[in-house]
Nucleic acid binder design. Structure first.
Length: 510
RNA sequence: GGUCCAUUCGUCUAUCGGUUAGGACGCAAGAUUUUCAUUCUUGAAAGAGGAGUUCGACUCUCCUAUGGACUACCA
């Protein structure tokens, strides 16, 4: 009988969540939904030194923006509350002590300075210091000190930590859903700190195992950087006697820098000109960082792009709604090697979503930008303008440059286009065009095109010359949508006004 | 340095022993077009190297190389 799928996303609030973290959350979410399980958000704030105010709120808002729903955890509560580790402090000491009593862990009284000195000394000899079976009985630990001495030190308030007593020369065999079977000899591992008296907090390893157990987590899906500590985690489950309910593990490949050379880091964004964070971030010290949301990306595009960075459906489909991702997701289609993030591809995804937006959706997004430029217009017209030009846009903000001439008449004219078309017979021809347009009653795109087209054919004028001169008058530049999209949109009166304006104000070349 | 993980076009990837090694981004060319784009078509572009196993290897094994992660009283 298989148990209920329960997964958790367990970030540390040491700063804004970056896109690698978002992807980990996303895969957890997809896995949970795919299997009808629960998605839990646990905040691992056991490092009092690195805690950053605002980070937790940022994480929650980021997940919300992405459409990653939390079933249980910080912000929503649940049967295993609290879900913030700092609020679960009293739980962990008991378990640390249990391990000591069972002989799986011990007290250590070294100070940070002593440890530093030891490391330096080893380094001087070209070796690396490891706190393990080779030294734990020489150092001030409950393994070398008498029971009375240990009690006395604790009683008088000496700082201490609990360390895991890593077995010597034993092979730990592990199974990872993505990587398969992995073996490690415990002699290469060290005695990790599990609990520190200084702040009465556990370290990641203890808190993680205890909480995953207590919260009945069935699958741990996390970044590959955790793979090296998997043996410790296996041993902890064994030490507690929790092997029967030990979760299955899946270690995700890392997200790499676009240039290669390491995992994507928080500083890469500014250096290379793309966001690494889902949302704009202001640190307590006033530093800021770009976010996908504020840079104009659609959440769906961001999620789609992220989902495909390390997972693929095995088909040639590229565009997925969240529901389609849920339906298709499977851990055995997650790749093993790191994936370089490509900013260009993120843009491409955004453009795809842009092209699929309805006029109504676009209107809502575009209106604030229009207002910023002093344009007051109906949702219908805003949507229509956006709809005509959306195929050329990557971001909503591109729409202003693309559609401004629908709303604002040109008062200056692009030099290149002017030199090319505002000369010779063209100004005179434009006057003729004006008369033709003035005679049209049905100013629809189709009708105007038919009438003007027939007139040009009849007169045997050059199509390019006429149209581009008209474009200069109406748009002021050598770009833009189809000419009849413009005439229909701005209407007859405005067309004539713009033509009159250029005729009066722009001196022909030569 | 040690431990572990990885390795198919520049990048993301498909292939689960037999394929002309497929798709996408980007790039190039062409077509369409009244402009700029879009779109469409086409093209260039890959199994890190070496040994095995096998009738046959991108696919399995080993070695080498390269890349990466970890190596804190951080997560």
């Amino acid at each position: 009988m298989s148990r209920e799928v329960r997964v958790r996303f367990a970030p540390s609030p040491t700063g804004p969540l970056h896109m690698g973290g978002v992807r980990t959350a996303l895969y957890n979410y997809l896995f949970a939904r795919r299997h009808g399980g629960k998605m839990i958000l646990r905040i691992e704030d056991t490092d009092s030194q690195r805690f950053v105010p605002g980070a937790e709120e940022y994480i929650i808002e980021s997940l919300k923006w992405c459409g990653i729903e939390i079933d249980e955890g910080v912000g929503v509560g649940g049967p295993h509350a609290p879900y913030r580790q700092s609020e679960r402090k009293e739980i962990y000491l008991k378990y640390a002590k249990q391990l000591v009593e069972a002989g799986w862990a011990y007290y250590a009284f070294d100070t940070a300075e002593e440890l530093d000195a030891l490391r330096k000394a080893a380094e001087a000899e070209g070796k690396t210091f490891a706190y393990n079976y080779t030294v734990r009985e020489q150092l001030p630990t409950s393994l070398s000190l008498s029971a009375e001495e240990v009690e006395a030190r604790i009683a008088r308030g000496d700082i201490w930590v609990v360390r895991f007593k890593m077995p010597e020369n034993e092979i730990v065999e592990m199974d990872d859903l993505i990587r398969g079977h992995v073996k490690v000899n415990t002699s290469t591992l060290d005695d990790k700190v599990l609990y520190k008296s200084a702040d009465e907090l556990p370290t990641y390893h203890l808190a993680n195992i205890v909480d995953d157990h207590l919260m009945e987590i069935s699958h741990v899906i996390r970044g590959e950087e955790w793979l090296p500590s998997l043996p410790l985690h296996y041993l902890l489950y064994r030490a507690f006697g929790w092997q029967d309910t030990q979760p299955q593990f899946a270690h995700l490949p890392l997200l790499l820098k676009p240039t290669g050379g390491g995992k994507l880091s928080k500083r890469d964004g500014d250096k290379m000109g793309f966001p690494v964070f889902p949302l704009f971030w202001t640190s307590p010290t006033g530093e800021t960082a770009h976010g996908y949301r504020e840079d104009g990306y659609f959440a769906e595009a961001f999620v789609n792009m992220l989902a495909l960075l390390g997972w693929n459906p095995g088909t040639e489909q590229e565009l997925f709604s969240m529901q389609e991702l849920i339906d298709g997701f499977s851990l055995d289609r997650v790749s093993k090697s790191g994936a370089r993030f490509q900013p260009d591809k993120a843009k491409w995804f955004n453009a795809q979503y842009m092209h699929r937006k309805s006029d109504e959706e676009l209107a809502e997004l575009f209106q604030p930008i229009l207002r910023e430029h002093g344009v007051e217009t109906s949702d219908e017209l805003a949507g229509k303008a956006a709809g005509i030009m959306k195929e050329r846009a990557t971001f909503i903000t591109d729409l202003w440059d693309l559609t401004s001439y629908f709303f604002v008449a040109p008062t200056s004219y692009e030099e290149k286009q002017t030199k090319k078309y505002w000369k010779g017979e063209n100004p005179a021809r434009l006057k003729e065009v004006r008369e033709v347009l003035a005679s049209i009653d049905d100013f629809s795109k189709e009708n105007t095109e038919a009438v003007v087209g027939a007139w040009i054919a009849e007169k045997e004028y050059g199509m390019g010359q006429i149209m581009n001169t008209l474009r200069l008058a109406l748009v002021g530049a050598g770009k833009g949508p189809g000419m009849y999209d413009v005439t229909a949109f701005i209407g007859k009166d405005e067309c004539l006004k713009r033509i009159d304006y250029i005729l009066e104000n722009l001196k022909p070349i030569e």
